[in-house]
Design a binder for these strands. Structure first.
Lengths: 231, 231
DNA sequence: GGTTTATTGGACCGCATGTTCCATAACAGA
DNA sequence: TCTGTTATGGAACATGCGGTCCAATAAACC
C-alpha cells in the first residue's frame, strides 16, 4: 500500500521491532481513509460480522485446532479476502481475542450498572456459568482464559493481550465489589482488588470444571463456596 | 502378531466396534508374555522414561502444538519404535495423561499421609502453585485441566479420562477435608465433597491465572481467599 | 548354526496446512 | 471511455503433518 521508497526511507531510523507495527498502523489508517472516500472496489462482506464468526470459531475450537478452511467456511469469504482484510491466521486471532474482551467487558459493565446491587451482580456473574452446561452445546469457557491456557507465556504479544484483557475484567469486578461494600453487602475492610482477583480466578476455575464435565449441582456447590468467601 | 486366519475366524461373530479393542487387548497380552519369556529382540529404550519425556512435552505444549518430531526428539527413539510401542500420537497422549494422573494422585496421597494436619496439607497444596511462577520455566498448569480445556467434550474417550482423573484428585482432597474436620480445623457440618470440588476448581483457576501471567503476590491473595472459604 | 521373533532406521505416502501470487472484477473519478 | 485503485477467486506453493511399510538387524531358543 505504501510505496517501497517511502517504506525504505522511513524505516531507516527505526528499530527493527517497531517497523512492522508502525506500518501495520499506517496502512490501516490509509486503508480506512480510502474506504471512507469510496476509492477502489468496495468490500463484499461485513468485516464486523466476519470477525464475529471467526471469534466464535476460535472460541469453540481454540487456535491450533481451527484451520483456515474452518475460518473461510464460517466467515464466508475467500482466502485472499481474509489475508487482505485481516492479515493472516494469527493476526486474525488476536483481533478476535480483542473483540471478545471488548464485548465481555461491555457486557459486565452493562450488567453491573443494571443490577439491583453489587452483590446481586456478582452472584449473577458466577451463576452465568450454569448456562454453559444447561444447553446442548458443549461449554467453550472464556476465550481469554482459553488463550492463556493454550499459549501460556510462549508468545509475548498474546501474553500481553491476555494480561490486558484480564485487567479490564478485573476492573469491572473490583467496581462491583466496591459498590457492594458501599451497599453493606461485603465488609468494607476487605481488599477489593484481592476479591476481584479471586473472582476472576474462581470464574476461570468454574469454566474449566464445566469443560471437564462437571454437572450443574457440582458447579452450584462451588459457586456457593465462592460467595461465602466474600463475607 | 496374531495370524490373519485367527483374526478372521475370531472376528466373525463379533460386533465391529468391539473387534479393535479386543485384538488390542489380546495383542498386548501376547506381547507381554513374549517379552517376559525373552523371546525376540529386546527393546533398546526404557518405555517408562520415554513415556515420561512425552508426558512433559504434552504438558508444556498441549496436544495439537506437539508434533511427532517434538516427541521423537524428547523421547529419543525412532518413528517405528514409537508406533510399535505406543500406537500413535493420540494413544500416546492418553497414556501420558493417565501417567500424569497416577503420579499426581500418588503425590497428593503421600503429601496427605506425611502432613502434620489435613489443614496444613491443603495449605501446602494450594501454595504449591507459587512454585510455578517462581522458577524461570513458564507455568504449565495441570496436564489434566489443560486437556479438559483443549478438548472439552469433543472427544468422548478423553473426556472420560479427564473426568476419571479429576475424580481421583477429588477423592484425596475430600479425605484431606475429612481429616481436617476430625482434627477440628474445618467445621464438621461442611459438606466435604463440596469443599473438595471447590478446592479442585480453585486450583484449576489458580494455575490458569499463573499461566496468564499473575505474579506471586496476586496468587497469594487468591489462595488466602480460598482458605478463608473453608472456615 | 538355523529358526523365530521383535526392534530399528529410513524411505515413502497422502494430505492438510498457512501463505503467496496473479489475472480479473468492480467501483470512483477525470 | 479511460485510468487508478482495491477486492475477489482460484491456482499454485512449500512445508510439515501423522502414519505406513519394508529390508536390515539383533537377541534368544532349539
Amino acid at each position: 500500500m505504501l510505496s517501497d521508497a517511502a517504506h525504505c526511507a522511513a524505516t531507516q531510523a527505526m528499530p527493527v521491532a517497531s517497523r512492522q507495527i508502525f506500518f501495520d498502523f499506517v496502512n490501516r489508517m490509509v486503508h480506512k481513509y480510502l474506504m471512507a472516500a469510496n476509492i477502489g472496489r468496495p468490500l463484499e462482506f461485513d468485516p464486523d460480522l466476519a470477525l464475529d464468526a471467526a471469534m466464535h470459531q476460535f472460541w469453540s475450537k481454540g487456535y491450533e485446532s481451527t484451520s483456515m478452511q474452518d475460518l473461510l467456511a464460517t466467515m464466508n469469504l475467500s482466502k485472499s479476502s481474509l489475508y487482505q482484510a485481516f492479515g493472516g491466521k494469527q493476526q486474525l486471532f488476536r483481533q478476535c481475542v480483542a473483540r471478545y474482551a471488548d464485548q465481555f467487558t461491555q457486557m459486565l459493565r452493562d450488567g453491573l450498572s443494571g443490577a439491583p446491587s453489587g452483590r446481586k451482580f456478582i452472584e449473577g456473574f458466577l451463576n452465568s456459568v450454569l448456562n454453559d452446561v444447561s444447553g446442548q452445546a458443549q461449554p467453550r469457557g472464556c476465550l481469554v482464559m482459553n488463550t492463556a491456557s493454550e499459549f501460556a507465556q510462549s508468545d509475548p504479544e498474546i501474553a500481553q493481550d491476555v494480561a490486558h484483557s484480564i485487567e479490564r475484567f478485573r476492573n469491572v469486578l473490583r467496581a462491583a465489589v466496591e459498590r457492594a461494600q458501599r451497599e453493606g453487602d461485603i465488609p468494607p475492610e476487605r481488599d477489593a482488588q484481592m476479591l476481584a482477583n479471586f473472582l476472576v480466578s474462581s470464574m476461570s476455575g468454574l469454566k474449566t470444571q464445566a469443560k471437564a464435565g462437571a454437572d450443574a449441582a457440582t458447579l452450584q456447590g462451588i459457586i456457593s463456596m465462592v460467595l461465602k468467601a466474600l463475607d
